[in-house]
């Protein structure tokens, strides 16, 4: 099944008295690497939670091809989620399971493969991420970088058509950040998946992205290729790219 076209129209969300999303609209390029950038607390992760159906918008629409998320039945939503992979900011690994069980969990849970095949596939993925021999390790013993890699392996094991990454390189050293960026690029290239990365890493954004959308004050203020973004006259965009504070 080809990766769906994803469109967000006028998404609004308020938490208590704070308007976090004030009418977010943008399109995600299918089968490409898309980035959402913006300062911390601007609502990047909130957009991701809406895209995965973890949060419900106050108003607005999210379209996956011809399916509007808020109108989707629980069955349709589940089917859609089986086509997604999400790398959480802190990994969100299951503490009660070993590293290998975490990676193999989606395959086991959905009965997509026998225990033997799930095991083998998880080991292959871990090996590809530089974590060979970690299958039986406990999650609690992992470093931040290792947690990210295990979470990445878990997100990839179902070979999803849509991959979401929530600040995948936050808390990693430059070398590991580079490795994770490479992994995102190679995963997209191999699978042809639609990738959406939430980040405030400007260097990675300008290197990896096919399209960048910038959120500021609850709205998307720019959505273009990295080259066009650099030439964008919006002072907020320029300030962010230059790493300037308000």
């Amino acid at each position: 099944m080809p990766a769906p076209a994803i469109e967000i129209h006028d998404l609004k969300k308020r938490y208590g008295v704070q308007d976090v999303l004030k009418g977010v609209s943008f399109k995600i390029l299918p089968e490409r690497i898309n980035f959402i950038i913006g300062r911390s607390g601007e609502g990047k992760t909130v957009i991701l939670k809406h895209l995965t159906g973890l949060e419900k918008a106050d108003s607005g629409e999210i379209w996956y091809d011809d399916l509007e998320l808020s109108q989707a039945s629980s069955k349709k939503l589940r089917e859609l989620r089986l086509r997604m992979g999400l790398l959480f900011q802190d990994g969100a690994l299951f503490d009660s399971l070993s590293v290998g069980e975490n990676v193999a969990f989606p395959l086991w849970f959905h009965g997509r493969a026998s225990a033997k095949v799930s095991h083998r596939k998880a080991e292959e993925l871990l090996e590809g991420l530089g974590m060979a021999g970690s299958f039986v390790r406990q999650v609690a013993s992992l470093s931040t970088g290792e947690r990210k890699r295990v979470a990445l392996a878990r997100a990839l094991i179902m070979e999803p058509e849509i991959l979401f990454f929530d600040e995948p390189t936050t808390g990693l050293d430059p070398l590991l950040s580079y490795q994770v960026d490479e992994l995102i690029a190679s995963a997209q290239k191999t699978s042809g998946a639609t990738v959406l990365v939430v980040s405030h890493d400007i260097a990675a954004t300008l290197t990896l992205a096919h399209q960048v959308s910038m959120i500021h004050d609850g709205r998307i203020v720019a959505s273009s290729s990295p080259a066009a973004l650099k030439a964008n006259p919006n002072p907020e965009v320029q300030k962010f790219l230059a790493g300037e504070t308000d």
């Binding site: 939670k49 995965t52 159906g53 973890l54 589940r78 089917e79 989620r81 089986l82 997604m84 999400l86 959480f88 900011q89 802190d90 969100a92 690994l93 299951f94 503490d95 009660s96 969990f105 989606p106 849970f109 959905h110 179902m158």
Partner: peptide
């Protein structure tokens, strides 16, 4: 305690996104 810890570390969200109830 176990479910709260799973909730605050987004493990329950992770299950949901995997299509598990």
């Amino acid at each position: 305690a176990e479910l709260s810890a799973m909730k605050v570390t987004e493990q329950i969200d992770a299950l949901t996104v995997m299509g598990a109830d």
